[in-house]
Amino acid sequence: MNRSHTFKALARRSPRRRSMAIVLAASAVLAGCVTINIYFPAAAAEKAADRIIDEVWQLKNGSQTPAIPEGKQP
């Protein structure tokens, strides 16, 4: 996928640089993965906010007020 493209592009440079680039890319990937841990589900939060706002403000046009709320319902 994208990653292999990156590696191919880097491979055209000197071999020494290449290994360094791999290390850098790997650490970037790792750093990226760390970023994932704090990834905030903005769309889901908006949906959750809307559902609560519908309830609190009793908005009739908030059509999607289902009887069984979504979420990790058993």
């Binding site: 990834y39 959750a48 709320p69």
Partner: peptide
């Protein structure tokens, strides 16, 4: 997070 639902219950 692909489900995109937050627990609010």
């Amino acid at each position: 997070w692909a489900q995109g639902n937050l627990e609010i219950n």
